[in-house]
């Protein structure tokens, strides 16, 4: 056995059994392992960075989701604004199945007082070229009148007619004609920062 260790052990034993503590015995210094500290610090900092990154990611994700929600909401509002209504041959009455389309528009217009629309009426190619201009005008006016009756100020809605000059589908068949007998809605002002109706 190492004699120095033995001596130290004897001193400890004496001190433990005797009345007075040994005077000013220096506390045993912990064994300083600098490599471990560095390791821990590094681990800590990595964890912190990862936490930060995760938080940032979560924030970004939340932001993106919020943006996506906003985009979707805006797209929904835009879709509500721009969706077309269609008409029967040589008629300008709003069809019952199209009333909901116009109701959505009325809600968006009510929620966005700065929003203004151009309503354009269109006809299929079966009727007369010039009469179709009048018919398109009557169709645009019918859509406008419906929105007015829902409380939208007439000054926010301009109407124009393209007659049969701008077919969506240039075909000459029932499906194409049905597509082309329509009113379109285009934002002319107040289209930024659209608010979805409550």
């Amino acid at each position: 056995m190492n004699p120095r260790v033995l001596l130290a052990a004897a001193v400890v034993i004496v001190a433990a059994c005797g009345g007075k503590p040994p005077a000013e015995t220096p506390a045993p210094q912990p064994v300083v392992d600098s490599t471990a500290i560095k390791e821990r610090m590094r681990a800590d900092s990595i964890a912190a960075a990862e936490r930060a990154r995760a938080e940032a990611e979560a924030r970004a994700r939340a932001d993106a989701e919020a943006r996506a929600r906003a985009e979707a909401a805006r797209a929904q509002v835009l879709a509500a604004v721009s969706s077309m209504v269609h008409f029967d041959y040589d008629r300008a009455d709003i069809r019952p199945e199209d009333a909901a389309i116009l109701d959505s528009k009325a809600a968006v217009l009510a929620a966005n007082p700065g929003l203004r629309l151009r309503v354009s009426g269109h006809a299929d190619s079966r009727g007369s070229d010039e009469y179709n201009l009048a018919l398109g005008n009557r169709r645009a006016a019918a859509a406008k009148r419906y929105l007015e009756n829902k409380g939208i100020d007439a000054s926010r809605l301009d109407i124009v007619s393209f007659g049969e000059e701008r077919p969506l589908d240039p075909g000459e068949n029932e499906a194409a004609w049905a597509q082309n007998r329509r009113a379109e809605f285009e934002i002319t002002a107040g289209g930024d920062n659209l608010v979805a109706p409550q």
């Binding site: 300008a92 406008k144 109407i159 007619s161």
Partner: peptide, 10 residues
């Protein structure tokens, strides 16, 4: 000539 108006009439 004919004119189409805002109220829908021509």
């Amino acid at each position: 000539f004919s004119r189409s108006a805002e109220d829908g009439s021509t």
